[in-house]
Amino acid sequence: MFYPNSPQTSPQLTQIPYGQQYAMMQRQIQQPYHPFATTEPQARLYPYHYQGPIQQEQGGFITQQSTAASPQYVQMRVTPVDQSIMSGYPNQTANGSSSSSFNYNIHPQQQQQQQQQQQQLRHHAMPVGSVPLQDDRYRKQLIVNYLAPDVTSTDLHELFSRFGELDGARIIYDKQTNMSKGYGFVYFCHAEDAKEAVERMSGYEFHGKWLKVGYSTNPLNIVPSNSSPYVHAGSRGAAG
Rank of each mutant, 00 (worst) to 15 (best):
S70E: 01
G184F: 01
I172H: 02
I29A: 00
S84E: 12
R139W: 07
Q118C: 07
S180Y: 03
S235Y: 11
N5D: 11
L166H: 02
F185E: 12
R236H: 01
G182H: 07
S10I: 10
V144Q: 04
M86G: 00
I143P: 01
Q21H: 14
V81D: 06
Q12G: 01
R200P: 09
M126A: 03
S180D: 07
I171T: 06
E57L: 13
A94H: 13
Q8T: 06
Q30Y: 12
Q30I: 14
E57T: 13
V81A: 11
Q31I: 11
M86A: 13
F2Q: 08
Y22L: 12
Q20F: 14
T67Y: 14
A197G: 05
D82G: 06
Y230C: 01
G164M: 14
E196I: 12
R170I: 14
M179C: 10
H123N: 15
H207A: 04
D135Y: 05
S216A: 05
M86D: 05
Q28R: 07
M24H: 06
S100Y: 15
N103G: 03
T154I: 08
Q134D: 03
N105H: 10
P47T: 13
S228N: 05
I85K: 14
Q26P: 14
Y204T: 08
D136E: 14
L156Y: 12
P71L: 11
Y215V: 02
A125Y: 11
P32Y: 01
L13C: 10
G240K: 11
G234Y: 01
H34P: 14
F160Q: 00
V213T: 06
S228C: 07
S87M: 02
A238Y: 14
M86Q: 12
E158F: 08
P41G: 10
I172V: 04
A238W: 14
S227C: 12
I85S: 04
E196A: 02
K195M: 13
T217A: 04
V231F: 08
P224K: 15
P41W: 01
A37L: 15
Q28I: 08
I62S: 06
S98Q: 15
Y73G: 10
H157N: 12
D150V: 10
H107P: 05
I171N: 03
V144G: 10
H107W: 00
D167P: 09
L166N: 05
Y50C: 14
V186M: 02
R170Q: 00
L156T: 12
N218V: 09
T9H: 03
P35F: 10
Q75V: 13
H49Q: 13
Y183S: 06
T93R: 08
P41A: 13
Y204C: 08
L147D: 04
Y89C: 08
F185S: 01
S228V: 10
Y46I: 15
V198H: 08
H207E: 00
V144E: 13
A94T: 10
L13G: 09
V131H: 01
V186E: 05
Q56M: 15
A125P: 10
Q72N: 01
G208C: 05
T79L: 11
N103Y: 14
S153K: 14
Y230I: 01
Q8N: 07
S6V: 06
F61A: 08
G52C: 08
K175Y: 05
T177W: 11
W210K: 13
K212C: 09
Q58T: 14
Y204E: 07
A37N: 01
Q113E: 12
Q20M: 13
N178D: 14
Q134I: 02
K195P: 09
P71N: 12
S228M: 14
L211V: 06
A238N: 01
T67A: 11
E199A: 05
T177R: 03
T154P: 05
H157M: 15
T63N: 12
V131G: 04
G88M: 14
Y146E: 12
P7M: 00
P35S: 11
Q28E: 11
Q8V: 04
N105L: 12
N103C: 13
F102G: 05
S84L: 07
Q72E: 15
G234N: 15
A43G: 04
Y187A: 06
I16L: 04
E199C: 06
Y89I: 04
F102M: 02
